[in-house]
Amino acid sequence: MPKEVLINFDRCLGCLSCKLACAVAHSREGDIFKVVLGGERPQSRIFVHQAGKIKVPLNCRHCQEAPCIDACIAGAMHRKEDGTVTNVGGEQECTGCWMCVMVCPYGVIRSDEEGLKALKCDRECRDEEGLPACVKACPTGALLYTEVDEFSSRRRKSFLERALSQMF
């Protein structure tokens, strides 16, 4: 089963470390000091929003039934062998028609710096161990790169431990 970037909402502080790490990982320089000193303005592919009292990091979910792939008129949006959905490196070029933006249920596709092509999480930021930059940068462990079943199992165990501790 493929790994996904999943969120422990109760751990997110809204510090934006994930956004910064994502932007730097996708920059030409790949180093925060060179990016700042060089005046480059890389764009993050993760968004952090406030929903009530909860901070919510959002990025592409690489949906099984990805509406962005179906809506892409140019045919640039496609699924890679590892399961990620991207519009980079395929047979066609993104034309900037924004159909993917209109159908994305999470609102996590944006335009690139020039406003010409769609930009989204492509998971091309993984390090040697396969960990995405946003997950690696998260100081509280709010972002996890894990299999869905493993994440779900941990959540159940945590819930049961809390429930039992309140009973006794």
Rank of each mutant, 00 (worst) to 15 (best):
E129T: 12
T140V: 12
S17Q: 04
F9I: 10
K53W: 07
S153A: 15
C22S: 05
Q50P: 04
K55P: 00
W98G: 05
N87M: 01
K80I: 06
R61H: 13
G141Q: 07
C97R: 00
K120W: 11
E150G: 12
P42Y: 01
G96K: 07
S27T: 00
P139M: 09
G141R: 07
C97P: 00
D70T: 14
F159E: 14
R28Q: 13
N59G: 13
K19L: 12
Q166T: 05
E65A: 10
D112M: 02
M167P: 02
F33A: 07
S165R: 13
P139N: 10
G52A: 06
I54R: 11
R110W: 08
C138K: 04
T146P: 06
L58F: 10
A118C: 11
C138P: 10
E40M: 09
A118W: 04
C12S: 15
S111W: 09
K80E: 15
V85N: 05
G30V: 02
V148K: 15
R155L: 15
C100I: 05
H49W: 06
C94A: 02
A137F: 00
M1E: 13
L20D: 09
R61W: 08
G107Y: 14
L143R: 03
S27G: 01
Q43P: 03
E113S: 13
F168L: 08
E128V: 14
D127Q: 11
C72L: 04
P42C: 02
M77C: 01
R154N: 12
D82A: 10
F33R: 09
G30F: 00
Y145E: 06
T95R: 08
P42V: 02
A23P: 00
K117W: 02
E40D: 12
R79Y: 08
T84A: 08
G14H: 09
K117E: 07
D127A: 09
E4C: 03
K80L: 14
I54M: 09
